[in-house]
Write a protein that binds this DNA or RNA. Structure first.
Lengths: 340, 340
DNA sequence: GCTTCGCCTGAGAGCGCTCTCAGGTCTACG
DNA sequence: CGTAGACCTGAGAGCGCTCTCAGGCGAAGC
């Protein structure tokens, strides 16, 4: 009952580095050195400590490690919900692609991935807390420039995967160029009434794709035929319906996301028209949705996994300088939704 | 240069609770009490501390909190990669659905979500490390019974979302019943040559769905016409091709996952047959893929988001007792891939 | 007026680990 | 044989926060 810490030998209590050190007959410092594979410990001691670790089934407490070292071995991902409710995260393939891109590179350095979802108009406090408690860095999956700046101000180890403010480091795809190329492709295939279904007005990628469409249509001397979508299938369906109704002579559609394209194909089919015979379609993303549709979508490939991996590596390497940019191309993937 | 800790007033260094306490003229303990909204602090002091917190822009260091309190405010999710490479995580809608189901309930209690991906045959050490460093609990997204037991042995605060070992707490869907119901539905619609495309042999859900199919086919006195898939679109495509080749008289397919069903529809269409006119199809999951296909899939709805939310709540409430079970129904969602 | 009780408050002991730094040992060299 | 230098090793001071516990103070009871 004294001041001694009693810990039975068969105790279920998790062993600490102290236990390992005692079992190996060395100090905590030495135990720490061999556990972390750091220099400054002789062969014999290394062996004794390793044996003790194995015998006790010792696993370092990551929390204590993080506190003592000031490093967290975790990268934070923040996803913004543009759509209503969490349905966005559940249905849009984009997010799992960024997670999938990050996991392998994190695994290699034995780091964790923390996911945060914030509403578009969620309290700034939530964002601040994420930034303040960030680990090795923060990957902004689809955040607006304004919020990105806010995060970056509190945590320099930040990278955005979407077009963002000049000061925030970014790994970006050429959304404008991709959209432009898509319209151009449609034009070269003989289409002249090329409509577009855009994404959410506040989404940085959607904004650029819209810009690319406008530039192309202007350059080619075509009419701008736009409808607003929401990056969801339903939105694509309804937007296509509206477009078809208002402009029955449409012969092609550039759709800012594959999910909406899937909806659009259904609307077009339902209206009695055929894809690509009557209407050619080019989507954007090359997500799993692109290959689930009938016909499979011709689309602009956004190399999300590669981008996410690059962003993660960047964070792992250190603090990216403000305004850092790494650009990825957006290439055409031809499948069966474009004529000829 | 003395022993004093120098911290300029305009320092960029993040304020600690010590700073808050000093600014408010109280002790750390009191500051902690008001910050954590714990009882035992008078009104006036509360006000002073709150003011100091606001003025300094103080954000508690979660790592230190976790270490001191022994609680982590984070739930771990572990996803197994059955397919080759990380593509599995990137393309299969299942994972984002579990994440989407968990996020809202975690957000409500201000907890984080940590994602871990492990290869099916990855070292047991990886699994142990996750279990040992688990926070409020671990959600097993799609792990095998054997590995689930291993995790549960090291961390009792564990819940599986798929059929698992008897001892491991689980939030399960009625995969067997769902598969059975699907075949039954097809039979009632007049189909008699009902084939099946199954999932990975090691996947617990796939196993149950296979069982359900067999039971139904036995009960109805139909022939068993099975092909193996991998829960991926490509696998569904090839399995359907094989099936069509070996049994040209097939009039229906029960497909263990919507993604494979999407592939199967393409293969069937490519073979000159029509869905549902020539072949009826019922998928499984009701994921985003189900509504991207043409025609949209009739499918068995797996309420993944609800299950994930339930599992998370369970963990938040405390340690589920060994063998705990919560069951969710799997309901038919009729769309256009079934005849009549 | 004195004791009892209850409520605040702050001192201080950790949580488990990292990392600096002083001291100790050993080898090589003059 | 003395000494510089290289290399180990362990003591101990934190990391930032939680939480117990003892002491202080005022109100209530006798």
């Amino acid at each position: 009952m004294g001041g001694m810490k009693v810990r039975g030998r068969m105790s279920r209590v998790r062993p600490t580095i102290e236990d390992v050190a005692r079992a190996a007959g060395v100090s905590r410092a030495t135990a720490s050195r061999v556990i972390n594979n750091a220099p400054g410990a002789s062969g014999p001691l290394r062996a004794r400590v390793s044996a003790a670790v194995a015998e006790l089934g010792y696993q370092p407490n990551e929390t204590a490690r993080a506190l003592a070292s000031g490093r967290q071995r975790a990268v934070d991902v923040v996803a913004v919900t543009y759509g209503p409710g969490p349905g966005w995260l559940a249905t849009h393939p984009y997010f799992s692609r960024v997670l999938a891109g990050m996991m392998p590179v994190l695994e290699r350095v034995d780091a964790q991935l923390r996911l945060h979802a914030v509403g578009l108009r969620s309290s700034a406090a939530a964002i601040d807390e994420i930034a303040d408690n960030a680990g090795l860095g923060v990957v902004l999956a689809d955040i607006t420039p304004a919020l990105a700046v806010r995060v970056h101000r509190r945590c320099r180890r930040t990278v955005s995967l979407v077009p963002t403010a000049p000061s925030v480091p970014g790994v970006e795809a050429d959304n404008i160029g991709g959209a432009y190329a898509a319209v151009n492709e449609l034009h070269q295939r003989g289409c002249r009434r090329i409509a577009a279904i855009h994404g959410p007005a506040a989404n940085p990628c959607a904004i650029d794709r819209r810009t690319g469409y406008r530039q192309a249509v202007d350059a080619l001397g075509l009419a701008e035929l736009s409808a607003d979508g929401d990056f969801r299938r339903e939105g694509g369906y309804h937007a296509a319906q509206r477009l078809l109704e208002q402009h029955p002579d449409i012969d092609a559609m550039f759709i800012a996301c594959d999910l909406m394209a899937a909806g659009a194909i259904q609307a077009i089919t339902a209206s009695g028209r055929r894809v690509p015979h009557d209407i050619s379609i080019i989507g954007f993303d090359d997500s799993i949705a692109a290959v689930c549709t009938n016909p499979p979508l011709t689309t602009m490939r956004l190399p999300v996994e590669d981008m996410a991996a690059a962003a993660t590596r960047l964070l792992l390497e250190g603090t990216p300088s403000a305004g850092y940019r790494q650009r990825f191309p957006v290439d055409l993937v031809v499948r069966d939704s474009t004529c000829r």
